[in-house]
């Protein structure tokens, strides 16, 4: 079982990692240590690989800093579940291969709950029940299957949205 970490609405990237703690100001090696360093100092020392973030609306708003989702990835966060994500964070997470699910579980789950993520079945199992997670669009699944956009590009030498060729992919 993994731990559920709950956050509220509008968690901006300055809360995920303040600009003063960016790799530019510190070092890439220390990135995981600084996740939520001021917003929630108990997070980085206690988070374990496979843990899951459950948050409110507009998660990841603000700066385009990719080191925000990368810090969470380096902490081993297995998925982030929120009703909505800010667009740049959403893109960055897709590119890095971090699973995001647009679902509102904030009223259902509590911080510290146990949870087991089943990506194949698209569900989160907790002592409170089995929570279905919406399936990401096909091109996102294609990127994740390769572990991120860079790996995808190196394998196929094109962007995933070119795959259909008809230009009719919508989302």
């Amino acid at each position: 079982m993994n731990r559920i970490w709950c956050f509220g609405d509008d968690i901006d990237t300055d809360q995920i990692i303040p600009g003063r703690y960016s790799p530019y100001m510190t070092s890439e090696q220390d990135l995981a240590r600084y996740a939520f360093i001021e917003r929630r100092p108990d997070f980085a020392p206690n988070v374990r690989p496979g843990d899951i973030i459950v948050a409110g609306k507009n998660f990841g708003c603000g700066s385009s800093r990719e080191y925000a989702p990368r810090a969470l990835q380096k902490c081993g966060i297995a998925a982030i579940i929120a009703p909505t994500f800010a667009r740049i964070f959403f893109r960055n997470a897709i590119n890095l291969g971090i699973p995001l699910f647009e679902a509102d579980l904030t009223g259902v789950l509590a911080d510290g709950d146990d949870g087991r993520l089943d990506l194949a079945l698209g569900q989160l199992v907790t002592p409170r029940g089995v929570h279905a997670l919406p399936q990401p669009p096909a091109f996102v699944r294609a990127i994740h299957a390769e572990g991120g956009i860079v790996a995808y590009y190196q394998k196929y030498h094109r962007f995933p949205v070119e795959s259909s060729g008809e230009g009719t992919d919508t989302w």
């Binding site: 385009s64 800093r65 990719e66 080191y67 989702p69 740049i88 893109r91 960055n92 590119n95 890095l96 991120g148 956009i149 860079v150 590009y153 962007f159 995933p160 949205v161 070119e162």
Partner: peptide, 17 residues
């Protein structure tokens, strides 16, 4: 605005999705 990886891919390919 985009992140590191998108900008790197644009530098590498002249394109983005």
């Amino acid at each position: 605005g985009m992140g590191t990886t998108d900008v790197a891919l644009a530098f590498a390919t002249g394109h983005s999705w």
